[in-house]
Design a protein around this nucleic acid. Structure first.
Lengths: 193, 193
DNA sequence: GAATTTTAAGCACGACCGTGCTACTTTTAT
DNA sequence: ATAAAAGTAGCACGGTCGTGCTTAAAATTC
C-alpha cells in the first residue's frame, strides 16, 4: 500500500515535468511510461484513466505552486511586502523548464467542456483570489486606499505577470523583468499615493 | 489550378476555426477532413505534411489578425487614439469562439524546438512591435513624453490584454473589460500627465 | 471537342493511442 | 513463515494517427 503511493508520486513528478513541455493533452501514457522506466500498463494501473492522470497532474502542479509561490509569500508581513513577494516568486515559477502548466492548461481547455476544463477554471480562480486576498491585506494595513478594488489590483498584477512571462520566455526580451517591476511599482504607487 | 487554391483556402478556414479549440497539435487531418467534407487524402494533398498545414494555419490566422485588429487601428489618427483603437479591436479578437490561436500556439510551442516554434516567436514579436510602433506615434505626436520607453508601454498594454483575456473568457469575470480600460487609462495618464 | 493537367478519393502501411485482462512478482499483514 | 494483498509486466484489442501510392474524375488549355 505504501510502495504504490510512492511510485505513483514518482510517476506524477515525471508526468508534470513532461506536461510542462507538451501540455496535458500532448502527454501520452506510452512516453510517460518510457520516461518513468515502467511498462505502459504499470503506469496505467495507478490511474484508472488518462483523464484521471491529467487531473492528478493538475493537482500535483498546484501543490508545487503553493509550495513555491504562495507559502513563501505568506511568510512575509501582510501588505505590499507580501504582494511584492508573491510577484517575485511567481516570476521564478514561470521559469520552470517547459513553462507554466497552469497557462498551458488554460490555453488547452479554455473553450472545451469537461472535467479538465472545470478543474482548470477553479485553479485559475484560486490563483486570482490569492492575489486579491493579499492585496486586501495591504488595504487592511492602511497601505492601500480604503476604497481600493482588490480584484482590479489582482487583474492588473496578473497582467504584469502574464506579459512578463511572454516577454521573457517567448520573446526572450532582456528588459522583461525590469519592465514588469516598473509596471508593478507604478501600480503600487497609484494605490498608495 | 484556380479551383485548387479555392478549396485550399476553404480547408484552412475550417482548420483555423478548429485549431482555436484544440490547438495546432490537437488538430488532426482526419477530423479536419470530416469537418470539410473531404477525404483524408484529399485534404492532405493540399499540404505536403502536417507541419505545413499547421504553418499555413498560423499564416491564415495572422492575416485575419491584420484584417480585424491592425488595419482598423491604422485607420485611426496617429497617437493615443490609435493605441486605444488597437486595444479595442484586440479585445474583440480575443472573443473569437475557441479563443486566440496566437496564445494557443505560444503555450504549445513555447519551449519546444522546431519550425512551428520559430514562426510563432516571429509572429509574437510582430504583434508586440505593432504595439510599440503605435505607441511611438503617440510620442511623435507629442502626446507621450519624449523619453517614453515604447517597448515598456507595449509590454504593459500586452499585459492588460492578456489579463483581460484570462478574466473574461476563463474566469468569466464580469468586470474584466472595465478593469482593462481602467488599467489602460492609468497607463496613458502616467505617460501624458 | 480533344488533350493535358489538376484535384480528389480509395486504399493500405506501420506506428502509437487508451484501455483492459491475465499472470507473475513483490510487498505487507498475520 | 505463511497468507493475503498490492504492484507490475505481458499481451492483445480496436481505433486513429500521419503518410504515401494508385486511380478515377474534374477542370483547364489548346
Amino acid at each position: 500500500m505504501r510502495k504504490g503511493e510512492l511510485t505513483r508520486q514518482a510517476i506524477l513528478d515525471v508526468a508534470v515535468r513532461m506536461a510542462r513541455y507538451s501540455g496535458l493533452s500532448g502527454l501520452t501514457i506510452g512516453s510517460l511510461a518510457a520516461a518513468a522506466d515502467m511498462s505502459k500498463s504499470g503506469v496505467y494501473a495507478h490511474f484508472k484513466s488518462k483523464e484521471a492522470l491529467q487531473l492528478a497532474c493538475m493537482e500535483r502542479n498546484a501543490e508545487q505552486f503553493i509550495d513555491e509561490v504562495i507559502r513563501p509569500a505568506l511568510a512575509k508581513p501582510r501588505g505590499v511586502a507580501r504582494l511584492q513577494a508573491i510577484v517575485e516568486h511567481w516570476m521564478s515559477w514561470y521559469s520552470h523548464p517547459g513553462g507554466c502548466l497552469f497557462l498551458a492548461a488554460a490555453a488547452e481547455f479554455d473553450d472545451l467542456p469537461g472535467a479538465l476544463h472545470d478543474r482548470m477554471v477553479v485553479q485559475q480562480r484560486d490563483m486570482l483570489d490569492s492575489l486579491a486576498r493579499i492585496a486586501a491585506t495591504a488595504v487592511a494595513e492602511g497601505e492601500f486606499h480604503e476604497d481600493t478594488d482588490v480584484f482590479q489590483v489582482a487583474q492588473e498584477v496578473f497582467g504584469i505577470l502574464l506579459s512578463y512571462n511572454w516577454m521573457e520566455r517567448i520573446l526572450r526580451y532582456p528588459g522583461a523583468a525590469d519592465g514588469a517591476w516598473a509596471a508593478f511599482n507604478r501600480l503600487i504607487d497609484s494605490h498608495t499615493d
